[in-house]
Amino acid sequence: MQQPIKKIGKQTLQFMQPPVVLSFASIVGPMEGKGPYGSAFDYILEDTLFGEKSWEKAESKMLRETIKMTLQKANLTAPDVDFMLAGDLLNQIVAANFAAREITIPFLGLYGACSTMAESIGLGSILIDGGFAHRVIAGVSSHHHTAERQFRFPTEQGVHRPLWSQWTVTGSGGILLAREGNGPVITHLTVGQVVDLGIKDSNDMGAAMAPAAVDTLIRHFQDLNRQSLDYDLILTGDLGTVGLKLTWELLKMEGYRVENNLKDCGVLLYHPEQDTHAGGSGCGCSAVMLCGPILRRVVEGAYRRVLFVGTGALLSPTTVYQGESVPSIAHAVVIEYIPPG
């Protein structure tokens, strides 16, 4: 018997058996720990090296420990999980690859820049709903220093950052999805299209990503015939203050009303006094906010329906130096939860 197609409209998938979020965990760096949501993360690093010899090693360890912690919280071990989907910002996604070397779960490495958390949750849900897996673990990480040295300058270099630049988050988040169980469920996924409105300044990632976020949001609303106010929370990944304002503006132009339910992880994660300029960025930014405070609040019943939009700027230092603009992508997943009782 042929299976029915689960795609709705142009870009949205509807899961027939919505995968359940069994557990989630997050580890953040010291600076993120001092932010407004410090107490909502599972573990705060004392220093950015995490007892390792290099920042790359520290990032990989952070991801590894997050995955282990996620499994522990669900009282499961590695053999209980069918696939691990993970990614990060480094060249050849080494943090994820090296974490997977230690965790013996069949592994698919992903790169979606800062949108990887949404991408991995989406793909994990597809695997489960498609009947290919019982349990899938998704995890991503980013590290301020590894990203900084790869994309910009050596960390001790005295540079003046523009006011619209963002601060790469040190942190990693993991989420365990399963076919059966109790917990929040992933009901839909909207796969984004790469959008580029010609922003060339690699510091201005919020402005580059805002159109991608808006594009995916509009497609999502159209495909499901929903409105922006149907969601208790629309959580974008790392648009920062500039990108969030632009998203707001662009959505308004298309006639969508967004009120206090549109929030951005990059803006939420730090206190304004922490002087990150436009807010946080990086894979870890959306990952730690989702797998920390936001899912906690979902489980508590504060949010019944959340639209999580991971946004990613698909640039590399080489493309920037060659004068290319910054293409961007956004994927959206719907998380719903009705608390028992």
Partner: peptide, 28 residues
Amino acid sequence: DKIGKYGGAGSIIPITGFANSIVASAME
């Protein structure tokens, strides 16, 4: 790097800024 954050070109152009760029790369 903290001086550079505020000083901008004022701390990059003098020879101390040159030393900074080399030592920062070496450390990195």
